[in-house]
Design a protein around this nucleic acid. Structure first.
Lengths: 233, 233
DNA sequence: GTCTATAGTGCGATAGAC
DNA sequence: GTCTATCGCACTATAGAC
């Protein structure tokens, strides 16, 4: 599946995402009308991602955010109680959307090679479609409070477990060569993540998202499908 | 070469590193005696890395740094003119040491497979020996001024070029399968970097630095040495 | 529902004693 | 060569006008 097709299938509905946040924070958000709340939350989140991904969340001031979002400082605080809570809200939202779409992508595929290919593509494509969210989550995770940090780690681990599961399945079926599934999964994940961590580099070199996903798939599969007698420690 | 052997060969002399910084900043450092300057610079840099890698450089205050280094705020400013300059100094030092040791590692090796193996090991081992520096450089690069940011990118690119050069050499010799050398180099670099970016995870799983380097080498080589008829776009 | 104005806090940086 | 004390500023967060 190519990136264009992924986008159609994923139905990344922005309005629905923000409506979900409004529903979850109905008590603390001052605006009564959903329409107003959804519109402003989108302004706030987009501005947070834009400014933070440029200079870092800690370095972003509420004055920066006010300017970038078009809302006054007073208005901002009608949507979250503190800067710390804003950080947690953005990260929670990113995790929720990511988790939903990832599970969606693998449904109904059985063959290990196909599953691994699909998992890699879904990840790369998703991180392309939601690049600001992924980058933000990666770079600002250490500024979360203990509880939210724990959830972020859990979420990362579950993605890795999914890769490891595919590898285990392939090894059990005798299709993949023997290796430590968790370690191989971790390294595959590292390759996948580089797409959104160093995107400027790939854009500069005109590497398309499809080509990048193919490269990672090729490298992962050539390892998994290598002559089993060559398997190392 | 194993990690233990690498450490012996590299001769990572802490005192020499700080002496070099003192020499370079002789005018701006108030302390006249080299011995004093070297000792305090080490305290300052170690404290900067420790606190920054925990909470981020931007979030680290000069009061934090004073406490962690054992020097007063006034004394700190006898070694650098501003917080921004401290950031640049630490990054410059890390780059200089890294660059020197990387070049050292590849000298005298000709065979492409050996060269690629050696390049991967040297990187992983070096990032293990100087983990706080590598992590700091990666996470805080975006807080550098324009000029220093440019230098950091250049330094990253030169590492990638080195990998790409090995791949080109191997392809020209008919040993490695055809692929885009720069793209393959970028992805190999992503695998290598994960060692210091997610070290907590590998420590938790008891993955040794030798085993990690072997895994990355295995994955890179199984791709480069794969049946050439399988080569993709 | 959104704004302006500002309170209160803690920052980076420095002056001057020792 | 190092410290303490403090300046001026910019920050987060809020109160109250409209």
């Amino acid at each position: 599946m190519r990136y264009a097709k992924f986008l159609q299938a994923a139905k990344l509905d922005q309005a629905a995402i923000y409506q979900e946040i409004v529903d979850q924070h109905r008590d603390s958000i001052k605006a009564k009308k959903d329409q107003t709340a959804v519109k402003n939350l989108e302004l706030i989140f987009e501005a947070t991602l834009e400014v933070s991904n440029r200079k870092g969340f800690t370095a972003m001031t509420m004055r920066d955010l006010s300017k970038a979002s078009g809302l006054s400082m007073g208005a901002l605080y009608d949507y979250f109680a503190s800067k710390e809570e804003l950080l947690a809200m953005v990260q929670r939202t990113g995790r929720a959307v990511t988790s939903r779409l990832l599970k969606q992508g693998l449904a109904g595929i059985e063959d290990p090679v196909e599953r691994l290919t699909q998992a890699i593509r879904t990840h790369v494509f998703l991180s392309e479609a939601m690049r600001p969210w992924f980058f933000f989550s990666y770079m600002e995770a250490r500024h979360l409070g203990d509880q939210e940090k724990e959830r972020a780690k859990k979420s990362e681990m579950s993605v890795e477990s999914m890769f490891a599961g595919i590898l285990r399945q392939g090894q059990a079926a005798g299709v993949f060569k023997k290796s430590d599934p968790l370690l191989t999964a971790a390294v595959i994940k590292a390759m996948v993540q580089d797409w959104y961590l160093k995107r400027w580099k790939y854009v500069k070199r005109r590497v398309s998202v499809n080509r990048y996903a193919d490269q990672v798939r090729d490298m992962a599969l050539s390892f998994c499908l290598a002559d089993k007698s060559e398997a190392s420690v």
